[in-house]
């Protein structure tokens, strides 16, 4: 339910912000000046979940550096403290994780205007954590055994694909989300004591995992670049003049306004 709420809030941010811009269509110029930025942000989903579930703490922040209008370097780090209990065992896991990769903005420069980002991030994640089973109950023909498995350190790693959206809603302040699809490379534990949860990845007993981040970010423009815009050939259409084209009707973003 919390995740659904986050999704709905995200949609409202997109729709609301998109609606606040003019939808006038003008002929774009040959070049556009874009600010290139460094961003630093913090995830708010982890702390919000922790308010309702004290067994699951996840703190995460990131820095991204635009290399050009389309590509940026992404660095992320976080801390996680996870507790889980079932009728027959308890599990604890805590540790740190880092992620590094590249973000690709799929928006055209004249659409993104240095304020919007909608694209995909590709990342490699590394997690260093400890896990232990403080109690574990086993019933068999020979009776009931209650035992523990002591704490051990592990290092797991994974790949992540993170499509998402980000919009600058105030001057140099942006909000945005990403959904994170992760593929496990190695849990860092043996095959018998796979980690139920490891920081940054999630369910260590699954070969894939999914998550979501909602970042609040502070943006620092450090350079302006001039981007040449490839002019598209106008498509022939049978629509009458004044009818909105299918592409602009289906787009989330307003076309750029040019003087």
């Amino acid at each position: 339910m919390k995740r659904i709420s986050v999704y709905i809030i995200s949609l409202l941010v997109i729709i609301g912000y998109s609606g606040s811009e003019s939808w006038a269509q003008n002929q774009p110029p040959d070049t556009v000046i874009l600010p290139i930025k460094i961003r630093a942000g913090a995830d708010i989903i982890g702390p919000v979940i922790y308010l309702t579930d004290r067994n699951n703490l996840n703190i995460e922040g990131y820095i991204s550096i635009d290399l050009n209008a389309k590509t940026g370097i992404f660095l992320d780090a976080g801390y996680s403290d996870y507790k889980y209990s079932q009728y027959n065992y308890e599990y604890l896991s805590r540790g740190y994780f880092v992620k590094a990769g590249v973000d690709f903005n799929l928006l055209k420069p004249e659409t993104s205007k240095g304020k919007y980002w909608a694209g995909i991030g590709l990342r490699y994640g590394l997690s260093s954590f400890t896990s232990e089973i403080p109690s574990f109950k086993y019933d068999s023909y020979w009776g009931t055994i209650i035992t523990t498995i002591s704490s051990s350190s592990s290092m797991g790693h994974y790949l992540e694909v993170a499509p998402g959206f980000r919009a600058e809603i105030f001057n140099n302040f942006s909000m945005g989300w990403s959904v994170n699809m992760r593929a496990l490379l190695h849990t860092g534990t043996g095959k018998d004591l796979r980690s139920i949860y490891f920081p940054g990845y999630g369910a260590g007993d699954e070969s894939t995992s999914f998550g979501i981040n909602y970042f609040l970010s502070w943006n620092i423009p450090y350079k302006r670049i001039k981007v040449h815009i490839k002019q598209e050939e106008p498509e022939e259409t049978e629509e009458t003049e004044g009818t909105e084209s299918a592409e602009s009707a289906g787009s989330l973003f307003p076309p750029a306004e040019y003087p």
Binding site: Y84, Q86, N88, Y89, I133, F136, Y138, T147, I149, D192, L193, R194, I196, A203, D205
Partner: peptide, 11 residues
């Protein structure tokens, strides 16, 4: 030796 079956089933 202990073995994890799954998160749901435990060890």
């Amino acid at each position: 030796f202990p073995h994890l079956i799954s998160k749901e089933c435990g060890y």
